[in-house]
Design a binder for these strands. Structure first.
Lengths: 148, 148
DNA sequence: ATCAAAATCATCCGAAAGGATGAGCTGAAA
DNA sequence: TTTCAGCTCATCCTTTCGGATGATTTTGAT
């Protein structure tokens, strides 16, 4: 930044010197003062605009634009909540299948256990999650990061 | 943008006129030309810098910074899928409450209709969504953006 | 080896859900 | 006016769920 200031300052100085020299040699004697004042004003306005834009470009405005990025692709079970609600491994399996929309019978078939077993697991799950229905259990499980 | 150009042009014009008037009245006879030329140059350089920075500020650099946003705070129903699956307004209400984990009876109470009515609605919903159970319906509805 | 937790399965019962079907009512479109 | 889709409610019946309870077996940790 300091370097730029020096450079621009020098350029301006040289321009002024050059102009004044030119005025002395070729202009001052043959034209009116007003015209040259106006020319100088215009010229240095242009120089100023150029310099000003150079300076301002440096401090660009940063606009932070929030973009919704894809949902976290890989799901990780919240082991913390699993412990907190004292949910066993088997219960978690049942919960996961339940959250996939399977019936108790289908869960039983998938896990190779009886329907009664699944009912026992799900009943305990409802207790632990403090819900009455499987739809609520699924909702809660998703909210707690227990299932995808 | 055109307005700004006009304003700045007018300001510059007025300044030049004012300066030249001042030069005539008080300055031209008592000081040397070089000093006033330099003053004019400096003044209009400043004006130019100011104008330049004004202009450049307009075309600010936009830096897009991707940020992972929690969950989409405001939910919008996917009207497209609603039509595609030919789901009526009332059915959608039932579906929404169902997705909140409510039982058919609770939905009936909320909508001030009988349990039978809710059962009819949900049955038709299952048909339309091509599912067998309410948990599956909820799953599907969420996937299709029908409910939050 | 022992003890506790987890997992398994069962029975009984009532509540909830779901399927099938029929029917009355209403508002909007043809 | 007729027609039709949507909403409502009902009945009958079957399946699924959920609660309560008790029992046996596995398993992991002390």
């Amino acid at each position: 930044m300091k370097k730029e200031v020096l450079i621009y300052g020098s350029v301006l100085g040289l321009l002024i010197i050059g102009l004044k020299f030119a005025e002395y040699r070729f202009l001052i004697h043959s034209h009116s003062f007003e015209i040259y004042a106006a020319l100088i004003a215009l010229l240095f306005t242009a120089v100023g605009i150029w310099a000003g834009s150079k300076f301002v470009k440096k401090k660009q405005v940063t606009v932070i634009k929030e973009v919704i990025v894809q949902a976290p692709s890989e799901f990780a079970v919240n082991e913390n909540n699993l412990k907190h609600f004292n949910i066993s491994k088997r219960e978690h399996e049942v919960l996961t299948l339940m959250a996939q929309g399977l019936s108790n019978q289908e869960v039983a078939d998938k896990l190779f256990v009886s329907l009664n077993t699944v009912k026992t697991h799900s009943s305990k799950l409802f207790e632990k999650l403090n819900v009455q229905r499987r739809t609520q259990a699924v909702q809660e499980a998703k909210k707690l990061g227990l299932v995808p």
